[in-house]
Design a protein around this nucleic acid. Sequence first.
DNA 1: AGTCCACAGGAAGGGCAGGCGA
DNA 2: TCGCCTGCCCTTCCTGTGGACT
Length: 401
Amino acid sequence: MSETNLKSKFSSYIEKESFFDNKDALTTNWKPENILHRDQQIDNLASILAPSLRGDDPSNVFVYGSVGTGKTLITKHVTDQLGEVADDEQVDLNILYINCKMKKVADTEYRLLARLAEQLGAEVPSTGLPTDEVYNRFFEALKGQKGVVIIALDEIDALVKKVGDEFLYNLTRINDDLKETKVSILGISNDLNFTEYMDSRVKSSLSEEEIIFPPYNAIELREILKDRTDRAFVENCMEDGVISKCAALAAQEHGDARRALDLIRVAGELAERSSKNIITVEHVDKAQEKIERDRIVETVRSQPKHSKLVLYTILEMVEDEEEIATGDVYSEYKQICEKVEVSELTQRRVSGLISELDMLGVINAKVISKGRYGRTRQISVDLSEDIRRQVNELVEEKFYI
DNA sequence: AGTCCACAGGAAGGGCAGGCGA
DNA sequence: TCGCCTGCCCTTCCTGTGGACT
């Protein structure tokens, strides 16, 4: 681009008014003034937690609902209000909130206990101690508290699937050993069938109360989007139907409000970069593609190197054949390893990697039986040309293919 | 009815990096 | 510095299995 062109690009960027007035209103951290379509859940949670204001320990609660149904928002909203009232009334109440899925923060038993202890004022190194020592420090910190401690564990299903439910068992039994302090647990799970993974004792003590968050339908999503976009965007910057389109796309995808907000935000950003002076329905389509592409590419980037190589192998193979089996992938993968001078992994591991890639939604792999000819995974790929190219570049760059 | 393929996938454990206390 | 911890990636060994073929 010539110098004058570049300059005019920059100056036209300044001249063009931004569509965004307050972009924060489209993030998940934003707390809207009025929360829509969740009155029942708010009411329910509030009445369950209210006894803590009288110094009684509230029942343990389990909050279920798929992603983007407002679980975290409502929990924070209710606990914040509760905390404020407790402060005003000078009631001893401590509310801890931990997201168990945060990488490197609370995604193991050790880290979870360390964070909890930290929030109670104890000091725990990020690694190095035996887990039972961390547990002790957490317990000591709890002893120092008076009144009720509510522990909110967000995305608890991810942690239990990873490390088992033993820590939950310990947490639910902790009240037996405490005198001054009463602990109550508020579990938040994305997985509706999550309790199946748990020991029945843990299950019964943890789900004394349950609150279900159903997915939003398209109409509800539209109202939520309307509310947020009124704050986030300047007036009259959207073509008719943009909000409905975002709501409809997100409703198709499990009624996910987060996805709806992402869509409208990315559509706005794309429109801003384009020459159009209004956000159009086409921008929403492009936003949908971009979000999916970014998700896949980011996922692949964070995979271990052999997972990248396996994916590369699969992408090469599906060029010629629609559906392939694990064994085919493995022999081809070995050849690629030889070519790039990397020592190959065992078939067991590659099988595991394929299974992971499937769970991450990068490839499709379902187990089928071919009778006499054994059981295997039938692998297919359903990625756009654009994504395949980006993934291939990612791998080729890394291995100098 | 039984066999047998080509894997799936569980369990246990090894080796390494990063990080601690003493 | 050493000894020990955890998390991560990986191997080894193993049992399980749907259904075409005999």
